[in-house]
Write a protein that binds this DNA or RNA. Structure first.
Lengths: 218, 218
DNA sequence: TGTATCGTGTTATATGATAAACAAATATCA
DNA sequence: TGATATTTGTTTATCATATAACACGATACA
């Protein structure tokens, strides 16, 4: 009877927030104090009205003929996403994609700090990737409890994904961000977000083979 | 006057197609001949009615009390996405993310073949990543014309992204799949798809900090 | 052979997201 | 100081997507 998905409003808006944030930070660096919805719209390649709607969600209001205060917007978005303070995370599966995420500059810029990595490969275990130690997967539960880790980034092969997630859940993880396309189930209280690279490729392919140029870029 | 975004119908459906495809292939390997929308719905963690709506797009119709023919669905989805035959692509920016994509097994499974990589790092140039030779970026236009490359995968830092894309366009590229969050513009005739890792993290963070567990997983 | 059942296809409704239209507010300039 | 232009906020309309309701068709079984 309970719905499979709990509704979250404004999901498309939330997806756009990081992009706003990056533009705003660039403006901040340049010393700009105000920004108009028209400018943001141009940068985002969307309509200005949509920008204003989106910003509504942050609770910040602009002033007519002036625009929005850059600093306020940055603070509001960061607060909304919880990106103000650092969030300790771990990486499970230190393969190439995992390593890439570890080194991803933007991730660190948004309060994500990976404090431990786990893998089964004896060669990797004990080594350091981008300053993060790789532990054996067997120590996952133990370290999960010792360190204060709320979020896990999972980049393991599909066939072991469910097992890894189960261990994470058992270790008390609160959120899982997974880059594996496999049918994973988690308990209701665990936040679960799958990233599917192929879905983006699909819309690109569809355009390439049938529809033709330039559509929306969600 | 022309709209910034040309509407494409059924975009969410298209994003789900690769996931269907993977499930169907697994069934095919197991020798299953038919599949019901209920089964697919369960695997995808969506409603069965949505599955049927999605499959409608492929043109395949099921038979009552039996379901859909697995092989037909696979063929139809592949045809829809143009994933039946191999699509030659190149990778620009052979950093960690680029290397990860190169080695990504699933990409190869779906008809994407990377035939050349480009980078500016002298150390990487001339070497081979996963069997793909890394060329200097300066040879981009030249090789683009010699090889038959329709799609480019771009994984370069934001500050050089526009320049790289410009070169690709000049070299006659038809589609660009870019993993950099920067304000890129392309001519109308070029298909352009940006992949934003941060957007997924944003919805996860939003749930983690304010809303709570499990929502839809687009 | 006829009936019950189950899964699909179709039609209709509801929700949510984007765009448009308009009103209110503030800086600029005469 | 007052008029104007510009940018925001609000309301309304349109469009896209997801869900629901129902009818149809095929199989299974008596």
């Amino acid at each position: 009877m309970s719905p499979k998905t709990l509704k979250i409003d404004k999901l498309p808006t939330i997806r756009r927030l990081p992009a706003y944030l990056q533009i705003l930070r660039a403006l901040s660096v340049k010393g700009e104090e105000f920004v108009s919805s028209a400018y943001l719209a141009d940068q985002m390649q969307i309509e200005a009205i949509l920008v204003r709607k989106d910003l509504e969600l942050t609770g910040i209001s602009g002033t007519p003929r002036v625009g929005f205060r850059v600093q306020d917007l940055i603070a509001a978005i960061e607060k909304f996403l919880g990106w103000g303070r650092v969030l300790d995370t771990c990486l499970v599966g230190a393969g190439q994609l995992g390593a890439a995420l570890l080194g991803h500059r933007e991730l660190n810029q948004f309060g994500i700090r990976i404090v431990a990595a786990f893998d089964t490969d004896p060669v990797k275990i004990g080594s350091s990737l981008h300053g993060v130690t790789v532990f054996p997967l067997s120590r996952l539960s133990e370290l999960l409890k010792r360190l204060t880790i709320l979020l896990a980034i999972v980049c393991v092969p599909p066939d072991v994904a469910q097992m890894v997630v189960d261990q994470l859940v058992e270790g008390g993880i609160q959120a899982v961000w997974i880059f594996t396309s496999a049918n994973i189930t988690v308990p209701e209280h665990v936040i679960f977000q799958r990233e599917d690279l192929l879905s983006g490729l699909a819309v690109l392919s569809a355009r390439l083979t049938r529809i033709g140029p330039n559509g929306s870029s969600t």
